[in-house]
C-alpha cells in the first residue's frame, strides 16, 4: 500500500502539474470572481467563504479524470486487480494520493486567496479547518465518480455531472462552517456534520468505488 502511495506521489511530481495545476486553477477562479461581481470589498468579503469553497471544489474536480484514466489506459488497473492488494484499499490509497496532491495544497493556499477576496479576520482559521475536513470527502467521492466512468471515452464531462450532485452536502456544510466562522458565529453543528460526512464517506465509498471498478474491468 505504501508502494502505491509513493508511486502515485512520485508520478504526480514528475508528470508535472500534479501539485501546481489545481492550485493555479484555484487562483484563476479567485481572480475571476471580482471581475464578475465587482471590486467592492464588502461584497467580496461577504461571498469570500463560499467562493473559496467553490473554487476548491472545482479545482478538485478538475484533476479527477486523471485519477484512474491513466492507470486504465496502460493496463495497470488490470494488474492491480489481480494483485494481492484489495481494490478497496488500492482505491483508498489513490484517493489519499489525490488529496495530498490536490486537496492539501488547496487547504494550505486558501488563506492567501482569502486575502485577495478580503475575507474577514476570524474567517481564515475556519476556512482552513473546514477545507481540511471537507476536501478528503471530495477526493473519496471523486474516486467513486472516476471508477464509474473510467470505461467511458471522454468521460470527464459525464463524471462532473455524476460527481457534482454528490458534492452538495459537503459543500453546504463546509461553506457554512467557513461563513459562520467569518461572521463570528457558532460553528459547532455544521462542523460536526461536515466531519461526520467525511468520516462516513471514507468508511463506505471505497466499497462502492471498488464495486464499480470491478464491473468496468470485466
Amino acid at each position: 500500500m505504501k508502494a502505491l502511495l509513493r508511486r502515485d506521489l512520485i508520478l504526480a511530481i514528475r508528470a508535472g502539474g500534479g501539485f501546481g495545476l489545481g492550485l493555479a486553477f484555484f487562483l484563476i477562479v479567485t481572480v475571476l470572481v471580482p471581475f464578475g461581481v465587482g471590486p467592492q470589498s464588502e461584497l467580496l468579503s461577504r461571498i469570500a467563504p463560499g467562493i473559496l469553497w467553490l473554487g476548491a471544489l472545482l479545482a478538485c474536480l478538475l484533476s479527477l479524470d486523471r485519477l484512474l484514466a491513466l492507470d486504465w489506459e496502460d493496463g495497470t488497473l488490470d494488474l492491480l486487480a489481480t494483485s494481492p492488494l484489495p481494490l478497496e484499499a488500492a482505491l483508498s490509497i489513490k484517493a489519499l494520493a489525490h488529496w495530498i496532491t490536490t486537496g492539501l495544497p488547496l487547504v494550505l493556499a486558501a488563506p492567501l486567496f482569502g486575502v485577495l477576496l478580503s475575507l474577514p479576520g476570524p474567517g481564515y482559521l475556519w476556512l482552513v479547518i473546514s477545507l481540511a475536513l471537507g476536501t478528503p470527502a471530495l477526493s473519496v467521492i471523486g474516486t467513486f465518480g472516476a471508477a464509474l466512468t473510467v470505461g467511458v471515452k471522454r468521460g470527464g464531462l459525464l463524471m462532473s455531472l455524476l460527481v457534482l450532485p454528490l458534492y452538495v452536502p459537503t459543500l453546504i456544510f463546509g461553506a457554512e462552517v467557513a461563513r459562520r466562522g467569518a461572521d463570528g458565529l457558532q460553528t459547532t453543528t455544521p462542523l460536526l456534520m461536515l466531519a461526520g460526512i467525511t468520516a462516513g464517506v471514507i468508511a463506505i465509498m471505497p466499497f462502492a468505488s471498488a464495486a464499480a471498478l470491478r464491473v468496468n474491468l470485466r
Binding site: I10, L11, R14, D71, D74, G75, L85
Partner: peptide
Amino acid sequence: YAAHSDGLKAMLTVTENLRFWADV
C-alpha cells in the same frame, strides 16, 4: 497475469517500475 499492456509508468525508471510491483 500478464496482459497485452504492461502497466508501466513512463515517468518512472526501470528499477522503480519493477520495485513497485515487487512491493505490491
